[in-house]
Amino acid sequence: MTDPTDYRAPIREFILNRFPGFELRDEDDIFALGFVNSLFAMELVMFVEKTFQIKVPNNEIRLDSFRTVERMGDLVARVTSGGRAPVL
């Protein structure tokens, strides 16, 4: 599984499970939508690492990598492919 779009569904599901009722598109900025607090941001980082069995490297721990479902999927693809995918 290397296509970034393959990683999006579980990420989207995790977010919507915590914030049901939201209409969330993969390109929506979840921080700009205003419902993500610091607690949930940390949970998101942990969720991505546990679900995809990766350790997000320091240079990837940045707000922009977690801003949208699409970008989080790209992040997972980059990490699992050893950084071959384009960096945001």
């Binding site: 610091s38 941001a41 940390m42 721990i61 940045r62 707000l63």
Partner: peptide
């Protein structure tokens, strides 16, 4: 340590946890 401008959602929350 940790991401610049994003300590609140990472370093701070993790340490407080």
């Amino acid at each position: 340590v940790g991401p610049e401008n994003w300590a609140a959602g990472t370093v701070m929350t993790g340490a407080l946890d």
